[in-house]
Amino acid sequence: MENILLIAVLLICTITDIKSRKILNIVTLPAILIGFIYYFSTNGLDGILFSGKGFLVGFGVLFIPFAMGGIGAGDVKLLAAIGAMKGAFFVIYAFLYAAIVGGLIALFILIHRNELKGFLVRIINSVFFLTFSKSKDSIQVSKSDLAPSFPYGVSIALGTIAMLFMEGTI
């Protein structure tokens, strides 16, 4: 039952992220609450701990990228909701699969836009500058120096679906 709800949440978040680049609180916050309520009603205090650990792990793995401005708050809340609904073990692997999918999507976008060579040159120049420069205080990174931006909720959804397949629940 929780897998059907999880797939519905992922589908809604994927659509809204693609259309408006937003993952809505009206979807993620009830999903978090439902995860806590479900596990509390089925397993009591152990269920709250299970859901709570999953929530904290899901929130924690994306908090630093969010704090650095590389990812949106909706992505963090979506992964936290996945953790609350499926637990810490599940959300760690879903995150790893999402990272792989996200990297492949970014690579595809770079190749499609013929920007791969320029991106690699910027990376090599940055590494060279960081390695041999005496003054590291004046390093400025702009958004154009980073990989292309895309709705990361898509990667999170695909990574989560991959994990559902791996655990044999789909």
Rank of each mutant, 00 (worst) to 15 (best):
L24P: 00
L24H: 11
I26A: 11
I26K: 10
V27R: 05
L29V: 14
L29N: 10
P30A: 08
P30W: 06
I32D: 01
I32R: 02
I32Q: 04
I32M: 14
L33I: 13
G35F: 04
F36Y: 13
I37M: 10
I37C: 07
Y38H: 13
F40V: 09
T42G: 08
T42I: 09
N43Y: 14
G44H: 10
L45N: 04
L45E: 03
I48N: 03
K53W: 10
G54L: 09
L56F: 15
V57S: 01
G58T: 08
G58L: 04
G58N: 05
F59P: 03
F59N: 01
G60T: 11
V61E: 08
F63N: 02
F63R: 08
F63K: 05
I64G: 02
I64S: 10
I64L: 15
G69R: 06
I71A: 04
G72P: 03
G72H: 03
G74L: 00
D75V: 05
D75A: 09
K77A: 08
K77M: 11
L78E: 00
L78S: 02
L79V: 01
A80C: 11
A80Q: 06
I82T: 02
A84K: 00
A84V: 07
G87P: 00
G87M: 00
F89Q: 13
V91Q: 04
Y93R: 12
F95T: 02
L96G: 02
A98W: 02
A98Y: 00
A99V: 12
I100V: 15
V101D: 04
V101F: 15
I105P: 05
A106S: 15
F108T: 13
I109E: 07
L110Y: 11
I111K: 09
I111Q: 07
H112R: 15
H112C: 09
N114T: 09
N114L: 06
E115M: 08
E115T: 04
L116G: 00
K117R: 15
G118D: 14
L120N: 11
L120S: 12
R122F: 00
S126I: 06
S126G: 14
F128C: 10
F129H: 14
F129I: 10
F132Q: 06
S133A: 14
K134V: 13
S135Y: 08
D137F: 13
D137Q: 13
S138C: 00
S138M: 08
S138W: 08
V141R: 12
V141G: 12
S144P: 01
P148Q: 09
S149Q: 15
